[in-house]
Design a protein around this nucleic acid. Structure first.
Length: 718
DNA sequence: TCTTCAGTGATTTTT
DNA sequence: TCACTGAAGA
């Protein structure tokens, strides 16, 4: 059979990966080296040459977007629908497995999924229920603790013996949380993975079934796998299985949420005869950009090693702009975007990348002032909106009366006279009897009981009226009859109108909803819709495909590319972030974030620093990010701010430090200093002379202080 | 039940 | 600085 068409468009390293004989492979795929191609071509190759059906292959990624892209490309390449093929996210595939084996996994058949917000609410309620102080046990931290334990595969019963009281309480909350989920028949995201791992591990027939079925496992973004995901893969991979793992250790930027780059290192020991293929030819960026990226990441230790190259030309140098302050920085960015557009470029070819979301504001203001349309990535997604979650909660109650999280969410939404007191009373009764809130309703007497009973009959009525209607009609009638629609219609503000629109959109989404192919026929369409909604929260912005400048964090830029990229806020303390400065491994992750940022650019990269930045209400004098210094100087073109009359008089450190200061002391403005009491800081200003010479120092912990040099006992830091 | 005020704390985010 | 939260007041 002629399969050259599968290899023709590939370079030699890509071919080597795609056409390798079955066996374990680790593909080190640099940024822009065509890894999605390699993954899809590999599957097509296995199909054409090794005669492996796509249904004997499992391909796993992290995001729904990546999964559907891979599926789409495969269907196109193999020219047939691949409905039942196992392509999806770790969570999606685990979910599918649990649906198919709910009994073996000891789950109720119609279990539903708790999203992050539901989880937080539940934990908050439990902390209060256990009479613990929320300031000592912040629910967010408790959630983080629980998820981290689950990601390590540790259940509350397996926790180490607690060493102090705080640990005792965390353990209590975790135990109560597990019980609450169990009672309500819900699982959180981490639970999907843990539960399916346990299923595979403890149930030999199930394990054998999947091990026999999947002769090939393909993993995308392998550097982002956490402990449990790696364990899941190892368990799923039978003795005859070939694992094709694609990743880039230099783009591992999710260590803070449990991703373990070590998995890439361990892969070679944990799997037999691993062959390593490096994809280093980059098809995205100019030579200059790649040289800069290579030089930067070379400052990290313990890398698997990889050097990107291109046969495209060097292109333009990287431009570095030192702005006076963050507004000047934003102004500069906007001006460059406008220039790009004047030269015939599109706005959506421009991306402004920042380390933290708070930085977007000034940029947005500048965009608005200059009437440049823009779009900010991230933010509230469709199924996370309050009104949508309300509607979903009603629908969940219709499916499962014992879903306490949903019960609490809507029992008084819209308000129907069931206040905190009534709910507290109900909770108490439910806790005493060990039953769900719903089951506890008949046990509550008095006025609260009457109101609660009305709520109960409302839900019963919603449930009855759903009947055999089509899914969208069911949702429409629940949204209406629950009173939610009327409630939001009362709000005539723009926000209220948007909410009503969203509710209508929810019905629209249901109308076009087609359940995930592989018939989990035992579930009703509504139940499938609800599960899908939790797993795929939808896009942040559906509308407006106007040509917009793109604003996003460096993290969310991963996987994307733009002709023109700005990296703003290149300042110590902001990027690398303050909290990472102490820990070398966290600092290396920051450097990888910078690496990801640089490699997003195709043609032209700008970096900016604002010498004065307002942060948390304080005016800070900043120091340029070390990452800028790590770039080869010959690749960087410095742009100085032009003097403008409208700008406050500004003294640049080198140029404007008063000569007497330079002569008499080792200090300059911008110099880092150490003070015995206040710690470390940066010199931001000075006045006076001789014995009266005073310096203003911005201390990291104490903020701005004026110190008389003669008495202050400062020492300079390099 | 809705509004107002003081306190707080402030990376990165997908599922 | 600012946005969000929880508790207190109308």
């Amino acid at each position: 059979m002629d399969v050259t068409y599968l290899l023709d468009s590939l370079n030699s390293a890509q071919r080597e990966a795609v056409s390798a004989a079955p066996g374990n492979l680790l593909i080190l795929a640099g940024a822009g080296s065509g890894k999605t191609r390699v993954l899809t071509h590999r599957i097509a190759w296995l199909n054409a040459v090794e005669n492996i059906s796509p249904f004997g292959v499992l391909a796993v990624t992290f995001t729904n977007k990546a999964a559907s892209e891979m599926r789409g490309r495969l269907e196109h390449m193999l020219d047939r629908p691949l409905g039942p093929m196992w392509v999806g996210t770790f969570h999606g595939l685990s979910h599918r497995m649990l649906r198919a084996h709910w009994q073996e996994a000891k789950l109720p058949q119609a279990f539903q999924i708790l999203d992050a917000d539901d989880q937080l609410r539940l934990v908050k309620r439990l902390v209060r229920g256990l009479n613990l102080d929320e300031s000592v046990y912040p629910p967010r931290q408790v959630v983080w603790f629980i998820n981290a334990r689950k990601d390590e595969g540790v259940r509350s019963a397996h926790l180490d013996t607690p060493r102090d009281d705080v640990q005792v309480q965390y353990q209590r909350i975790y135990t109560a949380y597990e019980a609450a989920c169990e009672r309500a028949g819900v699982v959180d995201f981490a639970e999907l993975l843990l539960r399916s791992l346990e299923l595979l591990r403890d149930n030999a027939p199930v394990r054998n079934h999947y091990q026999r079925r999947f002769s090939h496992l393909l993993v995308d973004e392998f550097q982002d796998t956490n402990e449990i995901q790696y364990a899941w893969l190892r368990t799923l991979a039978g003795p005859q299985c070939s694992v094709f793992a694609v990743g880039d250790d230099d783009q591992s930027i999710y260590g803070w949420r449990g991703a373990r780059v070590e998995n890439m290192h361990n892969f070679r020991e944990d799997f037999a005869n691993v062959e390593v293929v490096r994809l280093e030819q980059n098809y995205r960026s100019t030579g200059t950009i790649l040289q800069a990226a290579n030089a930067l990441i070379d400052h990290n230790s313990g890398r698997l090693g990889k050097n990107l190259w291109t046969d495209a030309g060097d292109g333009e140098p990287i431009s570095f702009y030192t702005a006076f302050d963050e507004r000047d920085e934003a102004r500069f960015v906007v001006e460059r975007v406008q220039h790009w557009v004047e030269q015939g470029g599109r706005r959506d070819e421009c991306a402004v990348l920042y380390r933290s979301n708070a930085q977007s504001r000034v940029l947005e203001e500048a965009m608005i002032a200059a009437s440049v349309p823009y779009r900010v990535y991230g933010g509230m997604r469709f199924f996370e909106r309050a009104e949508i979650k309300d509607a979903i909660a009603y629908l969940r109650l219709v499916c499962n009366r014992d879903d306490d999280v949903s019960f609490e969410r809507v029992v008084n939404q819209p308000t129907r006279g069931i206040g905190d007191r009534s709910v507290a009373q109900l909770r108490e009764v439910a806790r005493e009897r060990g039953v769900s809130l719903w089951q506890a309703v008949p046990l509550v007497s008095g006025r609260a009981g009457v109101a609660l009973n009305k709520f109960v009959s409302l839900v019963e009525q919603l449930s009855a009226s759903c009947g055999d209607q089509p899914l969208a009609d069911q949702i429409e009638s629940v949204v209406d009859a629950s009173g939610l629609l009327a409630h939001y219609q009362k709000d005539q503000s723009e926000k209220g109108l948007a909410r009503v629109e969203n509710l209508e959109e929810l019905v629209g989404a249901a109308r076009v909803f087609s359940p995930d192919s592989d018939a989990i026929e035992a579930l009703s369409p509504l139940e499938m819709f609800l599960a899908q909604a939790a797993l795929d929260a939808g896009d942040a912005q559906g509308e407006s495909w106007e040509d917009c400048a793109q604003l996003m964090t460096l993290h969310s830029a991963k996987g994307l590319e733009f002709p023109l990229v700005f990296m703003v806020g290149m300042e110590e303390g902001l990027f690398p972030h303050q909290r990472t400065l102490e820990d070398p491994s966290q600092l290396e992750e920051e450097r990888r974030i910078a690496y990801v940022g640089i490699t997003r650019a195709r043609q032209k990269l700008y970096m900016c620093q604002a010498e004065n930045r307002r942060l948390h209400g304080r005016e800070l004098f900043t120091v340029c990010s070390r990452f800028v210094g790590e770039l080869p100087t010959e690749l960087v073109d410095e742009i100085r701010p032009q003097v403008q009359l409208s700008r406050p008089v500004y003294q640049h450190p080198e140029r404007a430090t008063p000569s007497f200061l330079q002569e008499q002391t080792p200090y300059t403005i911008g110099q880092r200093v150490h003070h015995n009491t206040f710690g470390e800081g940066v010199v931001t200003d000075c006045e006076g002379q001789g014995k009266n010479l005073r310096m203003q120092v911005n201390f990291e912990s104490e903020g701005q202080k004026w110190l008389v040099l003669a008495y202050a006992n400062l020492s300079p830091l390099s």
